[in-house]
Design a protein around this nucleic acid. Structure first.
Lengths: 338, 338
DNA sequence: GCTGGCACTCGCACGCGCAGAGTGCCAGGC
DNA sequence: GCCTGGCACTCTGCGCGTGCGAGTGCCAGC
């Protein structure tokens, strides 16, 4: 177990390194933080911290920088979440309230997060799985072609074109639309399959094939997790990453383009609060020198999706966590209102 | 007027520079291209080309690199469009045919373009302005709240929530829906305003306010150009940009995040064929060291949107132009089918 | 257990010189 | 008149040695 002072030394190292981006030495530490002890003492503490793997030196006779393990301890034990100031909170709220539709909410959230944290922001669209159906609309495009439009309580709209096995009259279509909506409106997605399975039986034999096709397309749309979309922004902030660019930045950009990777990344964070994954804690190799700060957000009490930021492991954790948490809270509020 | 040989020298310089990324000297030129003359002669030609502003030297006693003007001449006069090979064309077609909906078509197109050109790809969603209305759907969310869903012939769906000045019954809603669709279905967006202006008159006095509100929201949706969305991809290719990273790449990333900038950029290209804007020809400052190769694509004969790539001015123009053209062609085909 | 002192180790910036590539110019040849 | 070979010149980039400064580890003393 590390003594109290050593923890303070670690905290000071993290703070200084995040501020200056340069390895921090014992002398500078005692000057900038009044630890009440001499550099020599700090050196001993540093040696101990290094033995434990919390800090490392890039080269012999250079200052120390925190390791992933060091950041982890810092985040878990040494730092809280820095709350947003009142003006900041107002600004967030004002900015988000200007949104006109779901796309706009997400777009604004991304911009906001990127600006506040000066890092890359990732916002997942509200997921379908926990939502409820607001309305299902069926439109006839051609005799044997129907467009299915699904509208959720979070304002999301999904559409699919269905090729029917047989022509399907307007009357049947209206009938199906009415029956479908009376059964599934305001129901949770998870419940829908059980509610519609006997629907084809209500129709004439010749229409049953089409009804089944439409229904299975609907169910597909409901469960299709990989349809989950997300929006990213603030990639220009990657340029503040470090000095040895091309090598650092490239894998990150690549990872960011792989929506699957990002969705998995966000999905892994099960914590109800803000989750931080530091450096190698991220499964994806390209993100081994980044930290991901994420949190769930939702229109009700329940989280329907995640949002977060990706930045260098050397980041201002308390501030970033505060910003992420605040933005998530306000987005949830906005979604609940609309 | 430049002599034939000088043009060939320019062409050789562009080709070599694009290949090697290094300033090209007279000796190397004569070795790699059999121009049939000695380095000394080439030097004279180079001096002339430099006087005319087609090439420049980064420092005294270094090789030459093409200027924007040089690339312009190269693109206009010295190089054709390199057609895709048959296997490439098949691959494009196969890949695009796997798409399940409009989003997927656009997403696949972006990936494809980025991979083929190894540059940043930008694809604009099929624009609303030239499309026709397939269907307008109205849904009652609450007594005084209506959701308006617009479906276009390119498969695009736009939705808006309308707050009505007064409660609006289901019957009136159905009435409005029917009248609206009978008037505007299969009409071009541009014609819609004229077709609906007298619609409120057909309704009871108490409903007119709501009808007007719904209609004006519809018209807004139709004309709202800035609602035009686009998708970008292949940003990881920016890392192949040059050596002096941070400065080069940052403004580009920033520009790419400004959808407005990109839309303007694509919009400026009026040419029916492939358009190339080189370096400073791009109005946006951040893109002064990039070239944009773009082309319109469409489901019919007419272009409904644009797509293109953004890359360093030092790019393989013939190949890039070929890829952009081919992709546009096949996307158009896919859109027409769906 | 803290402190001051001391020797040691590196990394980094600086200056230097050298090779290599490329140029411009000029006089001579076809 | 145009092309060519030759020559002197000018840069850039690289390798090398040096000195400086920051930082460390260790030790003896309080």
């Amino acid at each position: 177990m590390l003594s109290e002072r050593r923890l303070q030394v670690l905290r000071a190292i993290v703070q200084d390194y995040v501020g200056t981006e340069e390895p921090v030495g014992s002398k500078a530490l005692t000057e900038r933080h009044n630890l009440g002890v001499s550099p020599a003492t700090v050196r001993n503490d540093m040696a101990a911290l290094e033995d434990e793997g919390y800090i490392a030196q890039p080269h012999t006779s250079a200052g120390r920088i925190p390791t992933d393990k060091g950041y982890r301890l810092f985040v878990d034990k040494l730092a809280g979440v820095k709350p947003m100031t009142a003006p900041e909170r107002r600004a967030i709220q004002n900015f988000l309230e200007g949104a006109v539709d779901l796309d706009d909410v997400v777009a604004r959230t991304v911009r906001l997060l990127a600006q506040l944290t000066r890092q890359v922001a990732v916002v997942q669209y509200p997921s379908l799985t926990r939502s409820t159906v607001r309305h299902v609309e069926l439109l006839s495009l051609a005799p044997a072609r129907v467009m299915l439009v699904l509208i959720t309580d979070t304002g999301r709209v999904e559409q699919r074109v269905v090729d029917c096995p047989a022509p399907f009259g307007e009357a049947s279509l209206a009938d199906l639309r009415a029956r479908l909506n009376s059964r599934v409106a305001n129901r949770r997605f998870a419940d829908v399959p059980g509610l519609v399975e006997d629907l084809p039986e209500a129709f004439e034999h010749e229409d049953r094939g089409t009804v089944s096709t439409v229904l299975s397309t609907l169910l597909e749309t409901l469960v299709e997790q990989n349809e989950e979309r997300l929006m990213i922004g603030g990639t220009a902030n990657l340029t503040r990453f470090g000095h040895d660019f091309p090598l650092t930045i490239r894998p990150v950009l690549e990872a960011l383009e792989e929506q699957v990777v990002l969705l998995k990344l966000l999905g892994e964070a099960k914590d109800p609060g803000v989750t931080v994954r530091i450096g190698h804690e991220n499964a994806h190799e390209g993100l081994n020198s980044t930290s991901v700060v994420s949190v769930g957000y939702g229109s009700g009490g329940e989280a329907v999706a995640k949002l977060g930021v990706v930045g260098p492991t050397r980041m201002d954790y308390p501030g970033t966590m505060g910003a992420v948490r605040a933005v998530a809270r306000y987005v949830g509020q906005i979604l609940a209102e609309s």
